[in-house]
């Protein structure tokens, strides 16, 4: 089984985790057109390369992000969501 390294709990079998899908941009509902809002809702990053996605470690209910290659399944890194905030 694939190993995913939880930033809080360390390396664990991936079936301890739940995927919450690719990270999405946060468009402003006030200024975004209907067309773009629909795109925001229904489209997700499905590239064959590296995607950034949300994961939940189920036993500890901890949410974090992973950079994973969606073709090779290689996990490049995992990190706490506060790093996103720091980057913004």
């Amino acid at each position: 089984m694939k190993i995913l390294t939880c930033p809080m709990n360390g390396p664990r079998n991936i079936n301890e985790f739940q995927s919450f899908g690719p990270l999405k941009a946060n468009p402003d509902p006030e200024t975004t057109s209907d067309q773009d809002w629909a795109r925001h809702l229904f489209r997700a990053d499905n590239t064959r390369g590296v995607i950034v996605e949300w994961w939940r470690h189920v036993p500890s209910n901890y949410f974090f992000l992973a950079e994973r290659n969606a073709t090779t399944n290689e996990v490049i890194r995992t990190f706490d969501p506060s790093e996103l905030e720091a980057a913004q």
């Binding site: 089984m1 079936n15 995927s19 690719p22 995607i51 996605e53 969606a70 073709t71 090779t72 399944n73």
Partner: peptide, 13 residues
């Protein structure tokens, strides 16, 4: 499978 992937690998689980 429970997460996005472009691979035809099989899993034991």
């Amino acid at each position: 499978d429970p997460y996005q992937l472009y691979s035809t690998r099989s899993t034991l689980d």
